[in-house]
């Protein structure tokens, strides 16, 4: 039996800004070693909140009211700050959403890639540079020497996202949290980036928690999926089961709402209001 890399149990949180409104309701999810789990939901469903809770970067206005986040047998929520600091950025890494803002505009790519290697893997400046060069080649950047010396504004969005993927995998983490890493990109670039993440994680056996609102992306890259609505897990399971044989009316409606490449005239049906009503009743919100 494979040990779970990440187990979230009964995670609940409220937003103080919205008068103590629950943003996570008793959320549970697991991620196997080397697995890719999609975390899906519409805006405000709580998928990013879960990601931030794992990384320990929740905004001050969001308060965790219960639950555990078990990473490799230890609860992240009860860890001391310095223990967390040693895990974050080395055992758990983040691929951020927007490659425009995630690279420092005033520093060269090479220096930014080397940071993590120097800080988390105790490399000398020279080793880190050689390693960074190799990493850029790994993420299929054609001219790594030039990119090392470039500033972020000299690269395209897709290139920047490749650099960020390289930076995330640079520290050889066991868990990578990908926070909607393709939302800000062109559709054509999206596909390459998805393939790249899949390639990097399978070559290294890294577990990936993939936050997205797009079931199509889930179908391409994930092997299991958790679907959230209003901070509650609505449906969960292997991707194939959930997409082909959904249990919940909301999941079915969502799948129907997505575009169908084989039948362009079908699909794009908005989720019926009745489904939402039922859903809210089930969760217990008015």
């Amino acid at each position: 039996m494979t040990e779970n890399l990440l187990t979230v149990t009964g995670l609940s949180a409220v937003s103080d800004r919205e008068g103590g409104m629950p943003v996570l309701r008793d959320v549970g999810l697991t991620l196997k070693n080397g697995g890719v789990r999609g975390l899906v939901g519409e805006s405000g469903a709580g998928k990013s909140t879960i990601a931030k809770a794992i990384l320990g970067i929740l905004p001050r206005t969001v308060r965790i009211t219960g639950g555990w986040i078990n990473f490799k047998g230890r609860d992240l929520l009860s860890m001391k700050p310095q223990e967390l600091r040693s895990i974050m950025g080395s055992e758990i890494a983040l691929i951020p959403q927007d490659p425009q803002t995630a690279l420092n505009p005033a520093r060269r790519i090479g220096a930014q890639l080397a940071d993590g290697l120097k800080l988390k893997r105790d490399m000398s400046a020279r080793t880190a540079e050689a390693h960074a060069l190799q990493l850029l080649a790994d993420v299929q950047i054609r001219d790594p020497d030039r990119v090392m010396k470039s500033f972020p504004h000299q690269l395209s969005g897709g290139m920047r996202q490749r650099v960020l993927i390289a930076a995330a995998f640079a520290v050889e983490p066991e868990l990578v949290i990908a926070d909607e890493p393709t939302t800000a990109l062109d559709v054509t670039v999206q596909k390459e980036i998805l393939r790249l993440i899949r390639h990097m994680q399978s070559a290294r056996g890294t577990g990936v928690l993939f936050v997205t609102h797009d079931l199509g992306i889930v179908a391409q890259i994930c092997d299991s999926v958790t679907l959230l609505y209003a901070g509650k897990v609505i449906e969960e399971g292997p991707v194939r089961n959930v997409l082909e044989n959904p249990n919940h009316a909301y999941t079915k409606a969502l799948i129907a709402a997505g575009p169908r490449y084989d039948r362009p005239d079908a699909g794009l049906e908005p989720v019926p209001e009745a489904v939402f009503r039922e859903l809210r009743q089930e969760i217990g919100i008015s």
Partner: peptide, 26 residues
């Protein structure tokens, strides 16, 4: 509050270095 500072913080950079190296130049 930019993402690159968040990422640098996750890499374990000290607050002082975050301010001087990441934020100050911008």
């Amino acid at each position: 509050v930019q993402d690159y500072v968040l990422l640098a913080r996750l890499k374990g950079m000290s607050e002082m270095r975050l301010v001087l190296q990441e934020a100050l130049r911008n």
